[in-house]
Simulated assay, not measured.
Amino acid sequence: MPQQMPLRTLLAEISALTLHVQQLSRMAGEARALIDNSQMSAPTDPASSHPHDSAMPDEPDQRAQRVELEEAILRLFDETFGPRPDTLERQMSMSLIAEIGPAAFVQKVLWGEEISDIALTIALERMLPALDMLVEAHPEAFLRQANSVLGRFRSN
């Protein structure tokens, strides 16, 4: 009988595969756009911007806020999982933060509905209360879209 994989290892494998599928899907979309437009566009720097990270434009204040959020997330990892940089949770999360930004990362973990988001949430379960507190401390970063919608309702 085959040996069963520990749940943690299985979740890590699922998360890694899901992230790879997302990257491949994004690459296929870019290739499709190139074929449709018959021209090449400049590649985007995943560390500076991402379509899902539109809440953090590339302005000095937003860059400072991004750095502050990344440092806060690193402290939360240290407090939750210890200072080791080689933990699976940290490695998986840091590459995602670099790709989509800290605000979008926290939003995925707390409110994401895709299978990859749920796997990430399960992997970071011990960190969820601290991420909730981070959102409470920085609502302007994480709830910017909601605030703009509420502002439109208030003005009507």
Rank of each mutant, 00 (worst) to 15 (best):
76 L>Q: 13
89 E>S: 12
90 R>E: 00
88 L>I: 10
59 E>Q: 09
92 M>H: 13
114 E>H: 14
27 M>S: 14
113 E>G: 12
146 A>V: 09
115 I>P: 03
57 P>D: 05
24 L>I: 03
45 D>Y: 09
63 R>I: 15
46 P>S: 11
58 D>H: 06
147 N>Y: 04
93 S>V: 05
66 R>W: 00
18 T>R: 14
128 L>P: 10
41 S>I: 00
19 L>Q: 12
99 E>Q: 12
38 S>P: 00
146 A>Y: 03
56 M>H: 07
62 Q>C: 15
11 L>T: 09
39 Q>C: 09
102 P>D: 01
115 I>L: 14
79 E>S: 15
126 R>A: 15
108 K>N: 11
57 P>A: 06
135 V>F: 10
85 P>D: 06
13 E>Y: 00
116 S>M: 07
115 I>K: 10
107 Q>E: 10
129 P>A: 12
45 D>M: 11
72 A>G: 08
27 M>I: 10
97 I>D: 05
12 A>V: 02
47 A>Q: 11
29 G>E: 01
140 E>C: 00
100 I>C: 15
118 I>N: 05
102 P>V: 00
107 Q>W: 01
116 S>P: 04
89 E>N: 08
71 E>C: 03
128 L>R: 14
45 D>C: 13
94 M>F: 11
98 A>V: 03
14 I>Y: 07
21 V>F: 13
85 P>C: 00
104 A>R: 06
37 N>R: 15
61 D>S: 15
87 T>Q: 11
41 S>H: 03
120 L>K: 07
39 Q>H: 13
76 L>Y: 07
100 I>D: 02
121 T>N: 14
36 D>V: 03
62 Q>W: 12
59 E>V: 13
109 V>A: 10
23 Q>P: 02
139 P>G: 04
